[in-house]
Design a protein around this nucleic acid. Structure first.
Lengths: 167, 167
DNA sequence: CGAAAAACGTTGCTATTGACAACGAAGCGG
DNA sequence: CCGCTTCGTTGTCAATAGCAACGTTTTTCG
C-alpha cells in the first residue's frame, strides 16, 4: 500500500473534520474546541484526575489546569479532592456539564450523520470498520513512540531530508 | 448505521492524528502546523491567490495574510503581483519552500506509514477506500452547508437540545 | 526509618493561532 | 461616474498552548 496516498488522505480527513467540527461546536454554545475535548473525554471516561486528563488529551498540565479551572468556574465541572491521594484532584462533570456534554454530542453526531449521508449505504459498514481499525492503530502508534522519543533527540545527524525516522 | 459510534470514531481519529502530526512536524524543522497546511495546500494546488488560500484552508484572510507574509520573509514563499488583477497577489512556493514541502511530506508520509503498519495487510486496501470515501463525503458536506449557513442564523427557535440542525 | 526522587496541581511568562473589524486600493455593474 | 464588492493589510483581542518554577504530597530506595 502506498504511504503517500494514505498520508494525504488521512491528513485531509483530519483537517476537514476539524474545520467543520469548529463550526459545529461554535454553533451550539459558548463552548470552544478544547473545552469540547475536555467535556467529551470526561463524558466517556467518567471521573479522572487532572494529570490523567491532560495526558489523555496530549495537553500540557498547566494549560489543562487553567482550562479545567475556568470550566469549573463556569459551573460545568466539579473539582473534588481525592481521599486516597491528597495531591490529586478528581475532575467530573457537573449536572450542567452532563447537559452540555449531551448537547455537544448530539450536535457532533448529527454532523457526522450528515457526512455519512454522502456515503452509499453499502459502504457505510466498511467505513465504520476502517475507522475503528484506524483509531486503534493511531492509539497503538501513539503508545509505542514515547518509549524512544525522549532518548534520541538528535535528529540532526547528517542527512538533511531524511529527518524524523531515527528520532 | 449508528451515528453515535461513527461520530466518536471520526472525532477520535481526527484528534489523535492531529496530535501526532504536531509532533511529526515539530521534529522536522521550525514549521508549525498551520505553516504545514499552507505548504501542503500550495504544493498540491500550485500558485493561488491569498484569498483563495484562506478559503481553501477555512482560515481568516487576515491571519492568512500574516502567516504568508512571515513565511515569505523566511524565504519559503513568493508573493508576485498578478498582471490581470492589480488587487490580487499570487502565492507560490519558492525553491526553499518546495524543499520544505518535500521534507514535510516525507516526514508525514513516514508517520502515516508507521500508523498503517498497525493495520493488517489484508485490511489496508479497505482502509484506503474508506478514507477516500470519507474525504469526498467531508468535502461534499462542507460544500453543501455554506449555501444555507448564513441565511438562517437563528438557532434558538425553541427546543434547547436540538440545536445545529436548522442552522 | 529517612532522604532523594517523582508526581501532582498551581501560577507566571511567553508564543502561536485565529477571529473580527476597519481601512485603502482596485475591479465591476449600472 | 457612483455604488458595491473583492482583495490584501493592519490593529486589536481572545483562545490555545508550551515551558519553567514552585509548594505539597507520595513513592522509592539506601
Amino acid at each position: 500500500m502506498d504511504d503517500r496516498i494514505m498520508g494525504m488522505l488521512l491528513r485531509e480527513v483530519a483537517r476537514l473534520h476539524l474545520q467543520m467540527q469548529r463550526t459545529s461546536i461554535a454553533c451550539c454554545s459558548g463552548t470552544t474546541s478544547t473545552q469540547c475535548f475536555i467535556l467529551t473525554e470526561l463524558g466517556r471516561s467518567g471521573t479522572i484526575t487532572l494529570a490523567d486528563l491532560g495526558r489523555r488529551l496530549g495537553l500540557d498540565k498547566g494549560w489543562t489546569s487553567r482550562a479545567v479551572d475556568s470550566m469549573a468556574r463556569a459551573g460545568l465541572l466539579l473539582k473534588t479532592a481525592s481521599d486516597t491521594d491528597r495531591r490529586t484532584i478528581n475532575i467530573s462533570l457537573s449536572p450542567a456539564g452532563e447537559a452540555r456534554y449531551a448537547e455537544l454530542n448530539q450536535a457532533l453526531n448529527e454532523h457526522s450523520g450528515r457526512v455519512m449521508r454522502w456515503i452509499p449505504d453499502a459502504d457505510q459498514h466498511m467505513v465504520h470498520v476502517a475507522l475503528r481499525l484506524l483509531s486503534e492503530a493511531l492509539r497503538a502508534e501513539a503508545a509505542s513512540v514515547p518509549a524512544t522519543e525522549k532518548q534520541e533527540g538528535s535528529c540532526d545527524d547528517g542527512t538533511e531530508l531524511s529527518c524524523c525516522e531515527p528520532c
